[in-house]
Design a protein around this nucleic acid. Structure first.
Length: 565
RNA sequence: GCGCCCGUAGCUCAGCCGGAUAGAGCAACGGACUUCUAAUCCGUAGGUCGCAGGUUCGAAUCCUGCCGGGCGUGCCA
């Protein structure tokens, strides 16, 4: 369903024309007949190679050890016969056997018009065909505030969900709340210790406790609302109640932060609910019934090794308590029981040792290992003017997502988080993110959008009215820069499709930078509004289409498209 | 030790189901504001794609080994 690496196939008419030419040539005996490959058509990186190119002749040639150019000759012959110059204006064989094609003006006018007619939806595709996909992301434990790393995961998950939704998948965004287990217990003990301190009772602070200042804040709030209720009670039950109180409070803040970041989840899934409603027990019984579990040294083990993992994993410890993996098994079983065809988890890179056991778990509950896709997000290096910002998670001091958002704003943060593929570390320079200069890619792109809006406003003020798409005449668009802009507009559907297949939303930010460069260049060298009505009309139409493409791209990465700046 | 990821211009990184002269931003240098927003544009310079083999007509891209960096390898989360 998904293919990493990003296979790109264009959904433009060329695909059909060329595959039918391949078919014709095959039946004619000109090319090998077995299992014809789907032609890969790519946008040329240099206009001197035409608009589009395909290496299909070389692919075919390698199968029969023939000269690619001979095969290309045959294909070109068939292509000319089928198309008859309707969409392809010029076709050339070049280099080792590329077929380079330059499209007709009618073709480009047609694409531009369909963009104007369809609006932003022109860039959507339907590779998903309505299949249900869940994207689970952030899922930070409610034991402390979100930090920058979570922000990156949030930006990635949300943009990925957008891109998949634009590709015809039925998307659900989910946050898994780890509200059970040791960490929550530690949270309770940490807050309790700070609470007792407020009454002058020196309680020994837990060894692995959370040391952040926010723990003291929670303790103070607790004191305000509950007074001395927990002063003389039983540590055991008090800790439990306090933990619940603290976790709820932190989770509220997390929800606020994410909302402020523009991210809305369809569901917040509680880990505890899996224990409370018996899902964990049922999952384990199910696995046991199918011989995926065994008992050894007092613990209950999952046979993950036989399913590709390095070793077997404990699900119930010797002391009778469940490991997190036990609830994770139940959670993933639950996910698939809700009818998702595919489940995508976004995890911090330090969890990569967890992937194999989780996939083993997915197989054990009866799904395919690829029904679970895990995307690892590398760390964020927070810098200011090129120098690292001091952080120490051990002492509980770190820069929170909220602080970053307050300083640089949501648009800059989201865009910068998506400028790199998930797999590589990201330098996030606060000074650059805040700068209103061309160091900062967000403003560069947003400025391009605002500039177009400015032109459109001026056009309106001067009484220019754009006719309906069918009536617009685009014949005046003759400049190479104009062709370049249309090529960029036409590329967006393929960028989105490729990003969806490869699960790489960062392709969108690269694209936005490229099309914005073309726009700025065009803007600087040519005027849209002039005394020539037909020229103005055509150029205005072009601007509207560029605006649609940029706004669409920004929307998918979750960044606003301002009309003025 | 074993496993995974990364190593491309001075810096940060794209490109990677093999394909034409390896791209962009920043930094450097030189230019452009009487014109729809200069948060902009144009130009110059910058490369043994970590190293060594292999597969191929063709390798930054695939395979093997090595070097360097990160992470993982808990009855922790």
């Amino acid at each position: 369903m998904f293919r990493r690496g990003g296979e790109q196939k264009l959904k433009n008419p060329l695909t059909d024309i060329i595959s039918s030419a391949v078919k014709m040539a095959a039946s004619d005996g000109g090319v090998p007949q077995d299992e014809l490959p789907v032609p890969i058509i790519e946008i040329t990186r240099d206009r001197k190679f035409g608009d589009y190119a395909t290496n299909i002749a070389m692919v075919l040639a390698s199968r029969v050890n023939e000269d690619p150019r001979v095969i290309a000759d045959k294909l070109v012959e068939w292509i000319n016969k089928t198309d008859g110059g309707k969409t392809i204006h010029d076709i050339q064989i070049a280099g080792p056997g590329f077929i380079n094609m330059t499209m007709t003006e009618d073709f480009w006018a047609g694409t531009l018009k369909s963009v104007l007619t369809e609006g932003a939806a022109y860039a959507d595709n339907n590779i998903g065909q309505g299949r249900k996909v869940q994207v689970e992301f952030v899922s930070a434990n409610p034991t402390g505030p979100l930090h920058v790393g979570h922000g990156r995961g949030a930006a990635l998950g949300d943009a990925l969900a957008n891109v998949l939704a634009a590709s015809g998948y039925d998307i659900s965004r989910e946050y898994y709340v780890n509200d059970a287990g040791n960490q929550i217990d530690t949270l309770g003990r940490s807050v309790r210790a700070r609470y007792l301190e407020l009454f002058g009772k020196e309680e020994q602070f837990p060894e692995e406790g959370y040391k952040g200042e926010y723990i003291r804040d929670i303790a103070r709030t607790l004191k305000e609302s509950r007074g001395d209720d927990y002063l003389d009670g039983k540590p055991e039950s008090d800790t439990g109640e306090i933990a619940e109180y603290a976790a709820a409070m932190i989770l509220d803040d997390i929800k606020d932060d994410l909302e402020q970041f523009g991210i809305l989840f369809d569901r917040w899934f509680s880990e505890r609910s899996l224990f409370d409603n018996g899902d964990v027990d049922r999952a384990l019984e199910d696995l046991e019934g199918r011989d995926h579990l065994y008992r050894e040294e007092g613990a209950l083990w999952f046979r993950s090794m036989s399913l590709g993992d390095d070793k077997d994993r404990v699900v119930i410890k010797a002391d009778g308590s469940a490991t997190y993996f036990a609830s994770d098994l139940a959670y993933h079983r639950n996910k698939f029981s809700r009818g998702f065809d595919k489940v995508i988890n976004i995890w911090g890179a330090d969890h990569h040792g967890y992937i194999e056991r989780m996939k083993a778990g997915v197989v054990a509950v009866g799904k395919h290992r690829d029904d679970l896709e895990v995307i690892l997000v590398q760390l964020v290096n927070l810098l200011r003017d090129g120098k690292p910002v001091a952080m120490s998670t051990r002492a509980g001091e770190f820069v929170t997502l909220r602080e970053v958002l307050e300083e640089v704003g949501r648009d800059a943060a989201r865009f910068i988080f998506l400028t790199r593929k998930a797999d590589s570390k990201l330098d996030f320079d606060l000074a650059v993110a805040k700068a209103r200069s061309n160091d900062n890619p967000v403003f560069y792109v947003q400025y391009a959008h605002a500039r177009i809006c400015s032109i459109l406003r001026n056009a309106e003020e001067n009484g220019f009215k754009l006719p309906s798409p069918e009536e617009i005449s685009l014949g005046a668009l003759k400049l190479p820069e104009e062709r370049e802009l249309i090529r960029h507009i036409a590329a967006l559907p393929d960028i989105i499709e490729g990003a969806a297949m490869a699960l790489e939303p960062h392709r969108l930010t690269n694209y936005l930078r490229d099309i914005s460069t073309s726009l700025h260049n065009y803007y600087y060298h040519h005027r849209v509004l002039s005394d020539d009505p037909s020229l103005t009309e055509a150029r205005l139409a072009l601007m509207v289409a560029v605006r649609i493409a940029i706004a669409k791209g920004l929307e998918l990465v979750g960044v606003s498209a301002p009309e003025r700046m």
